[in-house]
Design a protein around this nucleic acid. Structure first.
Lengths: 146, 146
DNA sequence: GAGTTATGGTTGAGAGCTCAACCAGCACGG
DNA sequence: CCGTGCTGGTTGAGCTCTCAACCATAACTC
């Protein structure tokens, strides 16, 4: 059962990663960051807020945003009220790239998971994931600040 | 529900990776490779066989084994019947390292997943994973030979 | 206010992964 | 046999991720 779990989750993850990389030239990480930004007011978020939402370490986010910035998808601006702080802003290009990537990605998710499961199973899986998530350590990641 | 799924599976994966790396200085990848080897007769497997079992690309496996070899956990030997071929053999040190790592890892799996779910849920999850896995592309990875 | 500690964020080195290119050795057709 | 194509496996470049160290600013304490 455990091996089944590993195999299944790995497969899903791997397929998603591959599809997104192939069709849109971005890792799922970046996709998720852009999704978070796109949902924020002004498509803008503090770096740390963004890190918390996506459950990424600050370091990881910093590297990622650096890369995305040079891709033209994101811009950094400084925070007036706290001079250490930084905002990340999703650019028009970024939004466009996201809009372009989304349908394929969503479709992949559907076809891998939702299409093959019964309504009951989807419900069950939701329940299970919620439980696991709540039971787990929080934050589970590289102790907050890293 | 989808976000729940992502959060939960990521959390599990991330915790496992971290625990293993911290306590035994190896990524889960290597752990799995060694498990496969430890279960094989003579703790020996052809590279390609090993790749198939762990669902890793040949390239990935090759890099991994190279690293593990210089860690002293694995040895390569050549195949007499097919001079292109190579065997990977789990060394005594490798076996010891695995034996050392296993309890903590297993405990982590239990505490993250099995302890928090009801027997029914575990059953359901098993069913779900089996379904997803069978429905997915096979092989899903970097088209066989890469 | 001055010194200390905490917080926001970045940086660099090291490690693993992917992808594409590659080199052997094998197998098959003529 | 000899070429042509497969198969087993390796290699190197480029990318992301982690971890630890770091800098600057903010907040707290006396």
């Amino acid at each position: 059962m455990w091996r089944n779990y590993m195999a299944a989750t790995r497969m899903v993850e791997s397929c998603l990663e591959r599809q997104l990389q192939r069709d849109s030239g971005m890792p799922t990480t970046y996709y998720e960051i852009m999704v978070s930004l796109s949902e924020a007011p002004d498509r803008t978020l503090r770096m740390s807020e963004l890190a918390d939402r996506s459950r990424f370490s600050r370091s990881r986010l910093s590297h990622a945003v650096a890369r995305m910035e040079q891709e033209g998808w994101v811009r950094r601006t400084e925070c007036p009220s706290d001079k250490r702080g930084a905002f990340a802003v999703l650019t028009e290009e970024g939004f466009a790239a996201l809009a372009d990537a989304a349908p394929g990605h969503v479709e992949q998710v559907r076809s891998l998971l939702f299409d093959v499961l019964s309504a009951d199973q989807i419900e069950q899986l939701g329940e299970i994931c919620a439980t696991v998530r709540k039971a787990g350590p929080d934050p589970y990641g590289p102790a907050l600040g890293v």
